[in-house]
Simulated scan of single mutants.
Amino acid sequence: MSKLKAYLQLTRPANLVTALADILAGVAIAQFTYYSSYIAPGTLLLATLGLYGGGVVMNDVFDADLDAVERPERPIPSGRVSLQSATTMGLLLLVAGIIFAAAYGPLSAYIAALVALGALVYDKWAKHYTVFGPLLMGLCRGGNLLLGMSSVPQALYDWGYLALIPVAYIGAITLISQDEVHGGKRRTLYIAAALYLLVHVVQLVVAFMQGNGLLTVPLVAAHAWMVGRPLLNAINNPIGPNIGKAVKAGVISLIIMNAAWCMAFGNWHLALIVVVLLPISIKLARIFAVT
């Protein structure tokens, strides 16, 4: 059982749930209808599990030497999972993600392949750069939203630009996460706050354009509260533990941000399903590390 938990820990289960929320938000934005088929959400949800899981496993593979110093309790440096086993697992998950996406269609496979490539480039090189790292990680998350939109290919032309919003959001989280071990500067946290605000404003504008503004406001407000409190604490005292809590809140509250997208496009059924994912992610976050 402890061996299984070690392998699960590598995949960041709480984060995997947020990736599922990305796909459901993309499906809602695409206005996918379920009356004739359920294949899109099924295969694309499996695809994102492979892509996200593989990406975070490979992150730990490339960070094995650093984690041996800074986080020796993690599965690889602690010896609970060998480096070779973790590498095989990570690559197989990425390939599985592309295969599941291809089961829906070539466009979905193309997006999945780009996300997998982006994850590997980030894990190996980009994360060591202050700007390029957060940007690429944001692009991977934006690609995940596009993967959900690919359920209706035309939606990529109509609404594909909305993938820039998770780019900004995840970019903010990745930016501040660079200081979660040793502490950071308030300037970085203020930049993150500005990017969060941009996300909220765009979501509300789109929601009101779609005629669903009033229904979306509570979800946007809830998301602002979830990310705002720990971020404010980190701004007041930018030490490592506070920044870590801000990062954790930013990741988990992605679920509420995605629920807001569902509501903005009038799909309250999917919004409800996505909201239900939140307590699942929170529960998993108490068992497995998020960052």
Rank of each mutant, 00 (worst) to 15 (best):
residue 2 S to K: 07
residue 5 K to D: 14
residue 12 R to H: 14
residue 17 V to R: 04
residue 19 A to Q: 00
residue 23 I to Q: 10
residue 23 I to R: 08
residue 25 A to F: 07
residue 28 A to I: 05
residue 32 F to R: 04
residue 35 Y to F: 13
residue 36 S to A: 12
residue 38 Y to I: 13
residue 43 T to W: 15
residue 43 T to Q: 08
residue 47 A to M: 12
residue 47 A to D: 10
residue 48 T to Q: 02
residue 51 L to W: 03
residue 51 L to D: 03
residue 52 Y to Q: 13
residue 55 G to S: 10
residue 58 M to D: 04
residue 58 M to C: 05
residue 62 F to K: 07
residue 64 A to T: 08
residue 64 A to C: 11
residue 65 D to R: 14
residue 66 L to R: 09
residue 67 D to N: 11
residue 67 D to C: 10
residue 71 R to A: 13
residue 75 P to Y: 12
residue 75 P to H: 11
residue 76 I to K: 07
residue 77 P to R: 06
residue 80 R to S: 12
residue 81 V to Y: 13
residue 85 S to P: 01
residue 85 S to C: 06
residue 88 T to A: 14
residue 89 M to R: 06
residue 101 A to T: 06
residue 101 A to W: 09
residue 105 G to R: 07
residue 105 G to Q: 09
residue 106 P to K: 05
residue 107 L to E: 13
residue 108 S to E: 15
residue 109 A to G: 08
residue 109 A to T: 04
residue 111 I to M: 13
residue 113 A to R: 03
residue 113 A to H: 02
residue 115 V to A: 14
residue 117 L to P: 00
residue 117 L to E: 05
residue 118 G to P: 04
residue 118 G to E: 12
residue 120 L to S: 02
residue 132 F to W: 14
residue 132 F to E: 14
residue 135 L to Y: 03
residue 139 L to I: 05
residue 143 G to T: 02
residue 144 N to F: 07
residue 144 N to T: 03
residue 148 G to C: 02
residue 153 P to E: 07
residue 154 Q to N: 07
residue 155 A to C: 00
residue 163 A to R: 04
residue 165 I to S: 01
residue 165 I to E: 00
residue 166 P to E: 11
residue 167 V to F: 03
residue 168 A to S: 14
residue 168 A to M: 15
residue 170 I to S: 02
residue 170 I to E: 01
residue 175 L to I: 11
residue 176 I to M: 14
residue 178 Q to K: 15
residue 187 R to S: 14
residue 189 L to A: 11
residue 190 Y to T: 08
residue 191 I to C: 07
residue 196 Y to T: 04
residue 198 L to G: 13
residue 198 L to A: 13
residue 205 V to Q: 11
residue 208 F to E: 09
residue 209 M to C: 03
residue 211 G to I: 04
residue 212 N to Q: 13
residue 212 N to H: 15
residue 213 G to P: 00
residue 214 L to P: 03
residue 217 V to Q: 07
residue 218 P to G: 11
residue 222 A to D: 07
residue 225 W to Y: 11
residue 226 M to V: 10
residue 230 P to S: 03
residue 235 I to N: 03
residue 238 P to S: 10
residue 245 K to C: 05
residue 246 A to R: 03
residue 247 V to N: 01
residue 248 K to F: 05
residue 249 A to P: 02
residue 257 M to S: 13
residue 261 W to Q: 05
residue 262 C to Y: 01
residue 267 N to M: 09
residue 269 H to R: 11
residue 271 A to F: 00
residue 278 L to N: 01
residue 278 L to C: 02
residue 284 L to N: 02
residue 285 A to W: 00
residue 287 I to K: 12
